[in-house]
């Protein structure tokens, strides 16, 4: 059931993918509506990152179809914003926070315009990064890097935001801040989060897709933690949408 809009922005049908005899995804089908926040959880090697790469058009399906706004992923990349795991980026790269965000406007040819630079300031304001504009990328925290990469995607006019393990290696206050930002962004964007952190996703997600070669959709209710624990062996904590965090950063599970 699509919660926020019946208009599908992502439609995946009978998708299968593998390397020679090693099947990674089998007969995966789902659709995502405008403005939804979807979490994709599952064990290591379950196919989460592969699904992300298929949605981005970096990999081609062996069978089945992936449609983003009715187009192939390659044709629809301009609608996508991608926030990688920040550990995959070179922390020693001599680039400032402002420059990384500005790179959200990079085009196949040509220079940045005055308008592009003005939009950097707007995005930084929205993500509470203004004071970090001239800070070196290597000198900011994990939580700040996540917000910087989200700001870069906003600047690229993305309609769909894909986040790969956004809470890995960031502390609890930064997770809470990220949580609020994603909720705010979902008013304008569709968000897909690939994560191990079932506690984080249960707080903000409309629907959860559990992937372990095949895809199963689970409801976000009191059964969620039991399902995840029994299916994937992960201990998880539910943080309800209306739950206030206690001093340990955990809600009532």
């Amino acid at each position: 059931m699509v919660k926020k809009s019946s208009d599908h922005i992502i439609k995946v049908e009978n998708l299968s993918f593998g390397y020679s005899s090693n099947i990674i995804l089998r007969d995966v089908s789902f659709s995502v509506g405008h403005g939804e926040i979807i979490s994709i959880v599952g064990p290591n090697g379950g196919g989460k990152t592969t699904l992300l790469k298929l949605l981005l058009g970096f990999l081609k399906p062996q069978s089945g179809t992936v449609l983003i706004k009715g187009k192939s992923p390659e044709s629809a990349r301009k609608y996508m914003g991608y926030v990688p795991q920040y550990m995959t980026l070179d922390r020693k790269f001599p680039i400032t926070v402002g420059e990384v965000i500005l790179s959200g406007r990079v085009r196949p040819f040509g220079f940045y315009t005055k308008k592009d630079r003005l939009r950097v300031s707007e995005a930084m304001e929205a993500l509470e990064l203004c004071e970090l504009k001239n800070e070196r990328f290597s000198e900011i925290s994990g939580g700040q890097i996540q917000r910087m990469l989200i700001a870069r995607s906003i600047l690229s006019d993305a309609e769909i935001l894909l986040l790969d393990e956004p809470t890995s290696n960031i502390d609890s206050p930064s997770q809470n801040r990220l949580n609020l930002i994603l909720k705010e962004l979902s008013k304008k964007m569709t968000i897909l989060i690939v994560t191990h952190d079932t506690g984080f996703v249960s707080n903000i997600t409309d629907r959860v897709f559990c992937i372990n070669k095949t895809l199963a959709e689970h409801p976000i209710d009191d059964r969620f933690s039991k399902i995840v624990s029994s299916s994937y062996g992960n201990q998880s904590f539910i943080v309800r949408h209306d739950t206030k965090l206690n001093s340990t950063g955990r809600g009532n599970s």
Binding site: F58, P84, D90, S103, F111
Partner: peptide
């Protein structure tokens, strides 16, 4: 310059932005 920097800093994002 901008295209080369975007490519060597984050190749995946550069590809999404339509850069070859």
């Amino acid at each position: 310059y901008n295209q080369i920097v975007a490519t060597i800093f984050d190749e995946d994002f550069a590809r999404i932005r339509g850069l070859n």
